[in-house]
Design a protein around this nucleic acid. Structure first.
Lengths: 337, 337
DNA sequence: CGCCTTTTAGCAATCGTTTGCAACCTGTTA
DNA sequence: TAACAGGTTGCAAACGATTGCTAAAAGGCG
């Protein structure tokens, strides 16, 4: 109605309000000393013309973007897709946690081609901080960047001497729990499905070996570097299980997706789970509720993890130092073991 | 080594290069008239000091953000989570398509509380354009915004008279295909699992009715507004199937997730699929490969859809006009029918 | 009524680029 | 040699907000 002129910036509004731009700025941002009265008046005026201060100008001036980058490195597995259920779940949780804190989330899917991909991202100036989901095989890169760039946290495994700040479950322990469970169920010949080049998987495998030693089975476990994506893993696992001299009695999958695919291959071979072969996953994703049979797994509390990630990142942005967090994994026994 | 001074901006670099800031700007952005020689020299210098122009300043100056917003309205289903496999799949595809075009993706998950949520987002100035995934029950809001804001495209259903530009499959046809298939398999009593308040679901349901009429069955179909999230849908569907006077012979689920949950409930009731009940999903997500039995579904080509969405959005940003796109859905028959 | 303290508001610099315009070379042609 | 064209560069004004400093207004008190 009264929208005679378009208010394009803070000065326009200042003009029709009869004050200076600075005053408008102070009125709109609930900071700075300003009288209750003029603040209300200017806010009302802004609402009436539905004017919102230009964010880019604001960002430039205060040297902040109000956005957090979430980057997913697809390192040891070129074909891996962002739609991997694990990433997705994590991403959703992070989106919620960041929204709650008033940050935007800018998503970046990266295929590391050189050692500078992360430098490029963090130096791009698009974000105030960065969360990396999964170390993949890029631990060295993460450490390099972390040594000069504070606002960086990563979800994944933790190893001694690691420079970057991480949040993740105790992968070694998780592997141990899964393996001990299978052994208790009577399995002797075990196989680990997953590529140990990924740090977290390596730790899980180590846990398996520890559990086997503890049970007096030696550390002799077959390791098959299954792909992470279901489509890619399916033919692999099929040929592995088809050609194995001795079929394993128990399979520890490095992720729920791998476990789910394994279940499917076993069904196609006409093998019964858990009678012929027992399978356990890792992650505790919702999909494990919907497989047949329902999948036993090692649950990581991703909700807690996501909250830790953003809390710690914000603290680092504020200049604090933060130590890595290791969460307790939890064994979830269902029908596949 | 030679990093004696930190280069913080284009002027610093200009100083050590012995040129003016403008020249540096022209050298770094491969535009503007500048000699081959100085361009190379300055680029080399920039690389050496790994200097990257400040993006916020650039954005302010050129009045662009280089980012596209992807917003997921969680309208007719408050509990719905962003980790819904459908959203996730779409999101991943969009991330790829946008990255390819050099855009960032800022993710926003919104629970519409009033009629202005989308206005707030598009006016926030954080993005150059917006993609909305799913109309939910917010068609009116979408139309309102679309009438004044060009760079907006939405994934979802298409209805006559719709103002906003959409990309989606022919939901009515999809529903028809699914239903005709079930009828052909001998089903007479049919049920539709999904809430018709969502535009796309309404269209799918309409297709079901059309198919039934065409087969001379009348349009009499039981509609059960199942939740979208698996956890929420499970108890609902359980009580529905447990208390139904007559069990349907065929179930058309409005989404693959609903179908998957239905499968699980049926298994828990000891019913055999497809012998006792036939079930068909909608979307064609990867998860349909992993259910037991493998799920028949109506596939939408999401990859093509994502590409259409970004192409059209970029065209709209450039000032072009674009008409809505309706993709052909495809019946995928597997083991659940 | 005048002086002093506390608010409130204005001024102007700043953030770091981009870009239209003008000025400058360099080399060519008359 | 002078004029000219064409290609390079520099200058300085935006872009739109925030904020330290300062000046003015308002309020309190004797």
């Amino acid at each position: 109605m009264t929208e005679t002129v378009r208010i394009r910036n803070i000065s326009d509004l200042a003009k029709i309000a009869g004050v200076s731009p600075g005053t408008v700025s102070r009125a709109l941002s609930d900071t700075g000393l300003i009288s209750q009265k003029t603040r209300e008046r200017i806010k009302a005026l802004a609402r009436e013309h539905d004017f919102r201060p230009n964010i880019m100008a604001r960002n430039l001036r205060i040297q902040k973007t109000g956005a957090i980058g979430v980057v997913i490195p697809l390192g040891h597995e070129t074909g891996q897709h962002i739609s991997d259920p694990f990433f997705i779940t994590m991403l959703g949780l992070l989106a919620d946690a960041l929204t709650e804190k008033g940050y935007d989330l800018v998503l970046s899917r990266v295929i590391p081609t050189d050692a500078d991909w992360l430098d490029r991202f963090v130096d791009s100036g698009r974000v105030d901080g960065t969360i990396v989901i999964g170390q993949s095989d890029q631990a060295a890169v993460l450490d390099k960047v972390a040594s000069r760039y504070r606002p960086l946290v990563v979800w994944g495994g933790h190893s001694r001497g690691q420079v970057h700040c991480s949040v993740g479950s105790d992968n070694r322990l998780g592997g141990e729990l899964a393996t001990a469970h299978l052994i208790e169920r009577g399995c002797q010949r075990l196989a680990f499905f997953g590529d140990p080049n990924a740090l977290e998987f390596e730790l899980r495998l180590q846990g398996c070996r520890d559990a086997m030693s503890a049970a007096g089975l030696g550390g002799d476990i077959t390791v098959f570097p299954a792909h992470l994506m279901a489509e890619a893993a399916h033919p692999d696992i099929t040929s592995f299980l088809g050609s194995a001299a001795e079929r394993p009695q128990g399979i520890i999958a490095a992720s729920d997706v791998i476990a789910m695919t394994t279940l499917r291959v076993l069904a196609e071979f006409g093998l019964s789970v858990p009678d012929d072969v027992k399978v356990i996953g890792y992650d505790g994703l919702e999909l494990t509720e919907h497989t047949f049979p329902r999948l036993s797994t090692v649950r990581q509390d991703l909700t807690a993890g996501a909250h830790h990630l953003v809390d710690m990142l914000l603290r680092r942005i504020a200049g604090e130092d933060t130590a890595s967090v290791v969460l307790q994994p939890e064994l979830v026994v269902r029908n596949s073991t």
